[in-house]
Nucleic acid binder design. Structure first.
Lengths: 213, 213
DNA sequence: ACACTAGTTGACCGGTCGGTAAAGTGCAAG
DNA sequence: CTTGCACTTTACCGACCGGTCAACTAGTGT
């Protein structure tokens, strides 16, 4: 038998809070979402939030961990193993992002852009803890990009002396910029319109670090 | 004689408010800066702010206009006419941005990133007025980029069939992304490290719209 | 001398912010 | 049956938010 339900697995308020925080903060922003609103959406009283989390910042940190885990599982991993060839993988990635932004706009009425980039921009200057956590997630994304580029080098699609580490970071930067533009436009089509820039960047990078001076 | 002092040109509270709002909002963010703090820095009482501006949003709109005018005069115009050749102009632009971010970090202790991009990300989802104003300024920046690219086409540095309109938008997107990364790092060196991506993007764009399908 | 007006001042508003404290609830192990 | 503990509930806190208001000050034109 051993019903392993540790207590009695009622509503799992902790999960509800994380879900509500994700939907609200990703859809709008950190400061514009209050804990009262998060609690209301989660169907949980404010005091309970402070039983599970020390405060709003810690809740957001935990939410970001879960968000990255889902992003890795649903986009990064499939995009890496899914298509064949660098060009096809870039296009698949762009379309996955486009689909995400389109779905979010349909659900919440707003095109959110990149959840991690948004937080980095909003809190980067005055919350070092959040900033460093986001920086870590962005590094993890870069590592996935790099492994895609390394495979392309092995398959002869990119020159053998390609600096895949630097190029992966440029990939992420361009992707973040595309999402800033799409958010300014509030139009997912911007993702598709600017997507080809990724192909240009990733298939024409200079052979080796110029080693200036 | 005709001392043209319309009233008596005392402290010009309006200018002081715009200056304070610029320093604070650019250095941090829109929501994290209150009008009380803006008034305190400007040496003006709160009621006076509402004599010159309908509210915080209108003050920010006016501040953004002045900010863009300065950016155009101090960076965009010199960068366009200053150096010779596309490559040199890109590098001059990157270094101008790097200098700005370095100076801001020295003055306020924080690396702000792109003031327009920041506002677009922070307010893009829930303040259409601000979003549209920022979108207008970004379009103006894109127009300057495009004229640089058009000159490069005329000088034979880029192929004659280059889509300079699309490429200028990609330039802006990559620049915004670079500044998001620099803000996440809180390190101006990131601007220089990612700067070469602009050269890759702008000197290897595909000849013509692929015209798929 | 007077009225007009641009600009200033400080007190005040309701609402919301993140966070706290204390009492209560119900299950489970002793 | 009782104790302990995970969790919930409610009331409350001071601080701050953007914004309003009426009274006041001081130059200007008549």
């Amino acid at each position: 038998m051993e019903t392993t339900t540790p207590h009695h697995t009622r509503h799992d308020s902790r999960e509800d809070l994380l879900k509500a925080a994700r939907e609200l903060i990703v859809g709008r922003s950190y400061t514009s979402v209050g804990i009262a609103e998060i609690c209301a959406r989660a169907g949980v009283r404010k005091g309970s939030l402070y039983h599970f989390f020390p405060g709003k910042e810690a809740l957001t940190l935990a939410m970001l961990d879960a968000l990255y885990a889902d992003f890795e599982r649903e986009v990064l991993i499939p995009g890496l193993a899914g298509a064949n060839g660098l060009h096809a993988r870039i296009e698949a990635f762009v379309h996955a992002i486009h689909a995400f932004e389109t779905r979010m706009q349909a659900e919440s009425g707003q095109l959110p852009g990149c959840p991690f980039g948004n937080l980095a921009v909003e809190m980067g200057t005055h919350n070092p803890t959040l900033r460093r956590a986001i920086r870590g997630h962005l590094d993890a994304v870069t590592a996935h990009f790099r492994s895609v580029l390394d495979e392309a080098v092995q398959d002869g699609e990119l020159p053998g002396d390609t600096n895949t580490e630097a190029l992966a970071e440029q990939w992420l930067a361009l992707m973040e910029g595309i999402l800033v533009m799409a958010k300014a436009d509030q139009d997912p089509a911007t993702v598709l319109r600017l997507g080809p820039a990724l192909v240009t960047l990733l298939t024409h990078s200079p052979p080796e670090v110029p080693h200036e001076r």
